[in-house]
Computed example of a mutant assay.
Amino acid sequence: MNQGLFRKLLRKDDVRFIGIYGAGGIGKTTIAKAIFNQIFQHFEGCCFLADIRVEASEKHAGLVTLQEELLCETLGSTNFIVDNVNSGVDLIKEKFCSKKVLTVLDDVNHECQLESLASAQDWFGIG
């Protein structure tokens, strides 16, 4: 990876949201996995959620499952049970707001998926 890009991705004084957009089959997931694998060790917790489109197709039950998976993988615990999407949002905000975390959401195809998993920068700790 280009060292300048690497330094920009790891700035310690902000929260970054980066999107990769394009036609199917051009390697977006491959690029995201390569970057994730190179930088994940610089974070307190990390999670690569693949196939968001498939999971979320189950409506709210799918979003709740994704929220639980995000919390468990990022924080290294199996103790998170989310009752509904709104309580999942609150729990993600509470647990991540002071932590430097890396979250990759792969194959997002609807705004409600982002709103339920990573809606705003103030949900996450800086870095």
Rank of each mutant, 00 (worst) to 15 (best):
F17A: 05
G4V: 14
A32V: 06
N37I: 00
D14P: 00
E44P: 03
D51Q: 12
R11C: 09
K93I: 07
V85R: 10
I39G: 09
L66R: 07
L5H: 08
L71M: 04
K99Y: 06
K93E: 14
V101M: 00
N37K: 03
F48K: 01
F36M: 01
I126K: 09
L66N: 12
S119M: 10
L9C: 07
G25H: 02
T30M: 01
K95P: 02
G24V: 11
T78V: 14
R16A: 10
L91H: 01
S57C: 09
Q113S: 06
N109S: 13
V82Q: 07
K8S: 14
K99N: 11
E115T: 04
I26K: 06
E115F: 03
D107F: 03
I126Q: 11
V15C: 02
D90K: 08
K12I: 08
A118Y: 05
L71S: 03
K95S: 07
T65C: 06
E94P: 00
I126S: 08
L71W: 09
L63S: 07
R11P: 00
V89R: 00
F17M: 14
K99P: 01
N86Y: 10
G45F: 08
Q67M: 12
L75K: 00
F17T: 02
S119N: 15
V15A: 03
L5D: 06
I92P: 01
I31K: 06
Q67S: 06
L63N: 10
T65G: 13
E68A: 07
H110F: 09
